[in-house]
Amino acid sequence: MNEAALQKPDYEKALRDAGVRITRPRRVILGILSEGGDHPDAMEIFHRAVKIDPAISLSTVYRTMKLLEGIGAIHRHAFEGGPSRFEPAGDDHHDHLIDMDTGDVIEFHSSKIEELQDEIARSLGYEIVHHRLELYGRKRKKRL
């Protein structure tokens, strides 16, 4: 990803700017999101959070994620066959490959795919405004 994608989002500032009070549980959740480089679901965030503060509730995680999504600070993805996962909202466009065996989400960018999508849309008389590409696969077995 580009350098902008490597910058950690300032979720606390985004919530403060939206007029939301930053409680200790929210601060823990925001720290987990800022440090993570993955696409956690609410339960994963909750498990990480209670290791830091056992008083954090799952409902606090859900409310915080809903707030962040509402102000556009995160994107929620409902990948097939699993719970909603979250990632920072950013300017860098990328697509996802979901490992069907492990649930891992791999981000990738392909200029060939982007060009082909634009070509298809143009040929049909459209301009792409937004799109989301999700590929689902399994690791290939190595041949001996």
Score class of each variant (00 low, 15 high):
P40A: 05
H75G: 11
M65Y: 02
V50Y: 01
R63C: 13
R63K: 10
V61Q: 02
E44L: 11
R76S: 08
M43A: 15
I45T: 06
A42T: 04
G36M: 13
A78Q: 09
I45G: 00
T60G: 08
G70W: 03
S57W: 07
P40N: 04
R76H: 08
H77Y: 03
V61T: 05
A78C: 13
F79T: 06
H39L: 12
R63W: 11
K51H: 10
A73N: 02
L67N: 06
D53K: 02
G36C: 12
G72A: 03
L58A: 14
I74V: 14
K51I: 13
S59A: 15
E44A: 11
M65W: 04
R48I: 07
G37A: 06
G70Q: 00
E44D: 10
F79Y: 04
H47G: 13
F79R: 05
E80S: 15
T60L: 06
V61R: 04
M43T: 14
L68K: 00
Y62Q: 06
D41G: 06
Y62K: 10
V61H: 07
V61N: 02
G72Q: 01
A55G: 15
H75Y: 06
P54Y: 07
A55I: 12
D38C: 13
I52W: 11
A55T: 15
A49M: 01
F46M: 09
E69N: 06
L67F: 10
F46L: 08
G70M: 03
S57I: 12
D38S: 14
A55F: 11
L58F: 14
L67M: 10
I74K: 04
H47V: 14
Y62E: 12
A42M: 06
M43I: 15
G72Y: 03
M65D: 01
H39W: 10
G37T: 06
I52H: 11
T64I: 07
E80T: 14
R63P: 08
E44N: 08
D41Q: 03
